[in-house]
Design a protein around this nucleic acid. Structure first.
Lengths: 338, 338
DNA sequence: CTGTTAGCGCTTTCAT
DNA sequence: ATGAAAGCGCTAACAG
């Protein structure tokens, strides 16, 4: 069925040279006469020869596959997609290809896919940790696979991480609501197993406490996994006694779900909303959604740069790099308490 | 710097068996006594041994790498991202990893990346064609790389394709505007080098002609590449003499740009808008945006299934599978002519 | 400038 | 049930 692919020997036979000469031409080593070189190139074209990347790698001294693995929460999420694109834009000019996969917050998947990419000898791994323990990757690190974490810092693994200023950014968003006079600000956040969710909540707590307020546990909901759940939570909070006058939503899908609920209740111009993480069209809703914007492109680019530095042999202690967030005022966060 | 990774020989030495026995254990070939097997497994764990996927593939008879390449327009575009996720969900359960890359409508990138993945012996390639000639891939096909096209049909290459019902869907969208009484309907489309753009325009033309209308060239603008350009086109059309009473926008970013312009002009409730391809939050804008929705998940899933069938040896003539579109009424497409 | 010989880490084939 | 030898397609280290 499958035809055998042509090898360097086939090319050599057709060009009537030794197969080492073919290797020289393919790798542009030089030291081949123009005559032979053109014969070889002709044979390569005629046979549609493609050097076998796997075999090449086996003997090569630098032992590089020029491939990296990218493990994100969900490639369909706009944040992850933007990170992926930024990584790709760093990789392609370097001749590096990218394996990508989604983890869906599943630590078992993190382990399995990291192993898989490691077995394929990816030069490096860019990981948005799903679990709260990355010690299982120590073996891959020892084996020479460079690792850098994106979006969330690694736990129990000495590697570089690139993360947004989660606590500071969340604090800024909440202080913005406080400045408008809000005192009952609800917090809606992702699973607390996720480090970024904990950090954002810390920003919320600190901002309230700095204003002399206490956190009302009835206004705090963790472990929200999607827009639908957020919608339900907002709906029931608003139906309860003493509802909040503002919401701080700590993740983009949660923000969208919350807005959908407010909209359905006809409260989108009455209840303030500040979300963490920007999203497409946030400016075109009415009111526009005020957000603490992350910079996924900067995060992806920086993480890729650090990874390629490590692959190139950069040493030094692991560092955590922070990428600043920006408060973007669009209307929903400037609504006063009713 | 980089430590040598342990090989089967290292494992064999530590377990005091021949390295072929290690191979048997790793591949679960059977025919190994429980005693030896447990010694081998222990050694594997202690050394963190990972079989080298590249080397394994070199000698293997089935010659499979269990990797596929995915070439999309732009992984950060929501449509592409949804396709990618669907493909991944078919691949991972089969133990197959996915290389992905963005082409940005650049035929040269299509060629270069297809070659790259082919050299790495990807078992198959899923491609959203960037150029209008895929004949350059014939060599990869001959070499045994299965290819399936997604979103756009292949040109000059006998492979399966999975595409949306572009002409029918666009026709339905335009007829929907005609049914509300619109006669001056502008068409805003992507580059005409893209087959889907041509098909959608054909749907527009056919719908108008079936109603006895002629296409007014002043209302037709092709080659719109992004939301910003679409915004400018709408702005100038509305400023001209005899402006359209409705817009049909043939791609999601164009729809967003058009809406942004109408919104700025204060015309979003006065001028009708129907877009091709759905997007997140289209329902939460005011008015909600009426769209001809594609089903990127169905497209990606079906394309992946066809690809894995071909990889498994399915023969038969190339087929083009159509995935139906759906008209989603949300308000913007139901506005009457002023 | 060109060719020969090893050997990468593994699977295959063939012995024992 | 276990192992030895050969070879996958290529690059590295040496010749000429």
């Amino acid at each position: 069925m499958t035809v055998r692919r042509p090898t360097m020997r086939d090319v050599a036979a057709r060009a009537e040279v030794s197969f080492k000469t073919v290797s020289r031409v393919v790798n542009e080593e030089g030291g081949v006469s123009p005559q032979l070189e053109s014969r070889v190139r002709k044979a390569i074209d005629e046979l549609d020869f493609r050097p076998n990347a796997g075999a090449r790698n086996l003997r090569r001294s630098d032992n590089r596959t020029a491939a990296i693995g990218l493990l994100l929460e969900d490639v369909a999420n706009p944040f992850s997609a933007a990170v992926q694109r930024a990584v790709e834009d760093e990789a392609v000019p370097r001749g590096v290809v990218v394996f990508s996969a989604s983890l869906d917050e599943d630590p078992a998947r993190e382990r399995a896919l990291a192993r898989e990419f490691s077995a394929r000898h990816a030069d490096g791994l860019l990981l948005a940790p799903a679990g709260d323990d990355q010690s299982h990757l120590a073996a891959e690190l020892r084996a020479g696979t460079a690792i850098v974490c994106v979006d969330r810092a690694a736990t129990n693994l000495p590697v570089d991480s690139v993360v947004a200023t989660n606590t500071i950014g969340a604090g800024e968003g909440v202080r913005h609501l406080l400045a408008s006079g809000h005192r009952r600000i609800a917090y809606l956040g992702d699973r607390s197993t996720i480090a970024t969710a904990r950090e954002r909540f810390a920003g919320y707590e600190q901002a309230l406490e700095a204003s002399g307020l206490v956190v009302d546990p009835r206004l705090v909901v963790h472990d929200i996994r999607d827009a639908g759940t957020a919608d339900g939570v907002v709906t029931s909070l608003m139906a309860g006694a003493d509802p909040p006058t503002a919401f701080f939503t700590a993740q983009n899908m949660i923000t969208i779900g919350a807005f959908r609920a407010l909209r359905r209740l006809g409260l989108e111009h009455a209840v303030a909303l500040v979300g963490f993480d920007d999203f497409l069209l946030a400016d075109l809703l009415s009111p526009g959604i005020t957000v603490v914007a992350q910079d996924p492109v900067a995060i992806g680019r920086l993480a890729a740069e650090l990874l390629f530095d490590r692959i190139a042999g950069a040493s030094g202690p692991p560092q955590t790099r922070l990428v600043p967030t920006t408060l973007v005022r669009r209307g929903s966060g400037e609504l006063p308490p009713h």
